[in-house]
């Protein structure tokens, strides 16, 4: 079994990226990550076996993000789609980020998690472990979720292919 420090160093960045993708750019995810790794640390202290540490950490990070979104009520209250017309170039990237975050909220919570984890390069096996979707259904669910996101992005004027 890897030491805690190794698990921490190996996974911090991925968890950081997942949390940012879940919460949107500009969110402070430091506390979330500290909580997640603290839970993992305590689990190790109690000698509770975690078979797949990365999957466990992903799940814990997603849960913390969902909690935070709930508290901020972003989870239920749909935001209006950001207006993307007539923007200066320097604003463009921020607009794209806002639009991407918005389009992610148009997916179901499960689809959103799946797509975010997928974008972090998790294997189908890991995706199944973290999301609870049957391994044999990952391909189908993924295909549907990616198309849905692509459509949302196109509908809102996001230039997916450029």
């Amino acid at each position: 079994m890897d030491t805690f420090e190794k698990t921490y160093q190996d996974n911090y960045n991925v968890m950081y990226r997942i949390a940012i993708k879940m919460l949107g750019n500009g969110s402070d995810v430091t506390d979330i990550l500290q909580d997640v790794f603290m839970s993992f640390f305590e689990k190790q202290q109690q000698r509770k076996r975690v078979e797949y540490p990365r999957s466990w950490l992903c799940r814990a990070t997603l849960n913390k993000c969902v909690d935070k979104l709930r508290k901020e009520k972003k989870f239920t209250d749909a935001e209006p789609a950001p207006d993307t017309e007539d923007k200066s170039i320097c604003q463009e990237k921020q607009e794209m980020k806002a639009l991407m975050s918005y389009c992610l909220t148009r997916l179901s919570p499960r689809e959103k998690e799946l797509v975010i984890l997928y974008s972090e390069g998790l294997s189908y096996k890991e995706l199944a472990q973290v999301t609870g979707i049957a391994f044999t259904s990952i391909g189908k669910t993924l295909s549907r979720s990616l198309k849905k996101l692509e459509n949302e992005l196109k509908t809102h004027g996001y230039e997916v292919y450029k």
Partner: peptide, 15 residues
């Protein structure tokens, strides 16, 4: 193309 572009697009969220 969808796979590549969605992954790329999602990554713009990370500075």
């Amino acid at each position: 193309a969808r796979m590549i572009e969605i992954k790329r697009s999602l990554n713009i969220l990370i500075d």
